[in-house]
């Protein structure tokens, strides 16, 4: 397997509408505020082993609000 860079997730707060799909699919990577809108946990760094969950969350966001970037 090629060495992948470390992943980072980011929720665009202008696009997020609080569907909460990311929190359901990747609770380690996303958190919800008092209105139910999503934010990345910490600086968005994806711990090793959770990469698939990051991509899954992105693929299921109805508002296309999640960015996954490789360092």
């Amino acid at each position: 397997m090629p060495m992948a860079g470390k992943l980072k997730v980011h929720v665009d707060p202008d696009k997020c509408q609080g569907h909460a799909r990311c929190k359901a699919l990747a609770p380690e990577l996303f958190t919800l505020d008092e209105f139910g809108n999503a934010h990345e946990v910490g600086d968005g760094s994806v711990p090793a082993g959770l990469e698939d969950k990051a991509w899954l969350a992105k693929a299921n966001c109805p508002e296309i609000a999640i960015e996954v970037t490789e360092d």
């Binding site: 509408q17 299921n60 109805p62």
Partner: peptide, 15 residues
């Protein structure tokens, strides 16, 4: 179904 961006609850500000 792995990818499911369905709009059953609406899309945009009226989610």
């Amino acid at each position: 179904r792995k990818e499911n961006r369905h709009s059953a609850f609406g899309l945009g500000i009226h989610r």
